[in-house]
């Protein structure tokens, strides 16, 4: 039986690069991600540096998963629209995006999800304004802030995109 552990940790949605870097640091230390949930990560012992971990916002289809499996990657799981993958480092480099266009498209997808969530919270906040609606309005405010942060990243890439790929 392999040693396992669960780590509870939350990341802001705009810190997704930080989350990915942390998951890769864990892999370097011999902890391979093998399960995810809201606010927690499940790891199994592996050889240090055995895996590269990547995550992205995407509606994961079986077509996409088999496409990735063909390249040697494994699908770990998803939390809402965030999907997690890993690939053995010995099978070669593992990246999900290799140009600005697809990175911009990814940020737009993230914001698409955030817009939908913000709208739902605004709606519930107004409907329940005499009860616990303030919680939804607080969520709405936080989501709006997150949308702004993601949009900022998108603008930086779009400025670059005018000159290069």
């Amino acid at each position: 039986m392999k040693e396992t552990k669960t780590v509870f940790r939350l990341f802001f949605v705009w810190s997704f690069e930080k989350e990915e870097a942390w998951l890769n640091t864990m892999a370097e230390q011999g902890w391979a991600l093998d399960g995810v949930g809201f606010g927690y990560y499940h790891f199994t012992r592996c050889e240090p540096g055995e895996y590269t971990v990547r995550s992205e916002t995407r509606n994961v289809s079986s077509d996409y998963v088999s496409f990735l499996e063909e390249t040697g990657a494994e699908y770990i799981g998803h939390v809402f629209q965030w999907a997690y993958f890993r690939k053995k480092t010995e099978l070669g480099q593992f990246d999900l995006y290799s140009d600005l266009d697809s990175r911009i498209a990814h940020l737009k997808r993230i914001n698409g999800v955030l817009y939908a969530a913000a709208f739902v919270n605004l709606f519930l906040g107004i409907v329940n304004r005499k009860g616990l609606g303030w919680i939804n309005l607080l969520c709405f405010a936080m989501l709006t802030y997150a949308i702004g942060r993601i949009h900022g990243k998108e603008e930086t890439l779009e400025k670059d995109r005018q000159l290069r790929e």
Partner: peptide, 9 residues
């Protein structure tokens, strides 16, 4: 090097 997600899209 074409990354998997970029290529798929």
């Amino acid at each position: 090097r074409l990354a998997a997600g970029t290529l798929y899209g």
